[in-house]
């Protein structure tokens, strides 16, 4: 076959280019450790999602020191969880699946990008060095409202990051002269011991207590106030710890229909102690002050 010398040169140059491209990509894989989404994660069919231990509750979970796993479910036209909150200086592995059609999972401005295919689970590990706020978008057409499918990803500074949950148990009303027992249960979803401060305000009284909660457990903080100090009437209370806050109202009257204070334990449902606003006069009804 007759090939011109220049064309032979170009042929050689072409091979150099092709091999050069392959070498660059291989360097990215082997040298820098850039991993492709593969078939490592077990699949989950859409019907099993609600009973699957990974995806039934889409969430962020700490699995090691500075290591987190995020279970993301994409569906028309939302992402769960939303927002996704992780700390900076962490290694986060996303597991992404879809409940219905093929979606995308992209964090614009980063190299986080994956398909979410029903039946399959995409696994991608990312290191977050800096705090920041990102959008999460679906980048594969998934139906008529595809363009509304958006979530967010918040990388908080390490020292601000917590997975604290707060439950408060407080009476709705106490008789004048009785003691008010308020119990706050602070649970720590992280693996490590978490130190924080619980702030309690009842009426005009404020108290502050430092707590130390072991990893994956909870602590109770009890506050007792003499109702005489508050006086009769309605008193707002607020309990806050980290980014959590609960509030409610206690009525001090001279009745004796106090609510029994049940110590909260981890796993009990959060009791909302807000009074029914449609019936604000309930506590003051009945027998008047002597």
């Amino acid at each position: 076959m007759r090939i011109h010398t220049y064309e032979k040169l170009w042929l050689a140059g072409s091979f150099v280019l092709i091999v050069g491209f392959i070498v660059t990509v291989t360097y990215g894989s082997v040298g820098l450790g850039i991993d492709m989404i593969g078939e490592e994660a077990d699949g989950v069919s859409p019907d099993e999602i609600s009973s699957d231990e990974r995806f039934s509750e889409p969430r962020v979970e700490q699995v090691g020191e500075n290591e987190y796993e995020v279970y993301v479910v994409a569906m028309t036209f939302i992402f769960q969880p939303d927002p996704i909150e992780v700390p900076a200086n962490s290694e986060v592995t996303f597991y992404v699946t879809s409940r219905d059609v093929i979606h995308g999972f992209e964090v614009p401005g980063t190299n986080i990008n994956s398909m979410a295919i029903p039946g399959q689970v995409a696994e991608l590990t990312v290191e977050f060095d800096e705090p920041g706020t990102y959008g999460v978008i679906c980048n594969e057409y998934c139906g008529p409202q595809h363009h509304t499918m958006e979530g967010s990803l918040v990388v908080t500074p390490e020292w601000e990051f917590s997975q604290t949950e707060l439950e408060v148990d407080a009476p709705e009303s106490v008789a004048q002269g009785d003691e008010i027992d308020l119990t706050a249960t602070v649970s720590n979803g992280l693996l490590e011991t978490h130190e924080s401060t619980v702030n309690v305000t009842i009426g005009s009284q404020t108290t502050e207590q430092s707590i130390t909660v072991d990893g994956e457990s909870s602590e109770n903080v009890s506050v007792t106030v003499d109702s005489d100090e508050l006086g009769p009437g309605e008193h707002d209370w607020t309990v806050s710890v980290d980014d959590q806050e609960e509030s409610g109202t206690i009525t001090v009257g001279n009745e004796t229909d106090t609510t029994e204070s049940v110590p909260a334990s981890v796993g009990t449902e959060t009791v909302s102690v807000t009074m029914n606003p449609a019936d604000p006069t309930r506590a003051s009804r009945g027998v008047g002050y002597p």
């Binding site: 660059t24 991993d35 590990t125």
Partner: peptide, 19 residues
């Protein structure tokens, strides 16, 4: 190619990495 790979791609982390 070098610009796109090393500046545009590697410069805009986070990037998916192995464990």
């Amino acid at each position: 190619w070098l610009f796109t790979y090393f500046v545009e791609f590697l410069g805009h982390g986070p990037t998916v990495v192995g464990l």
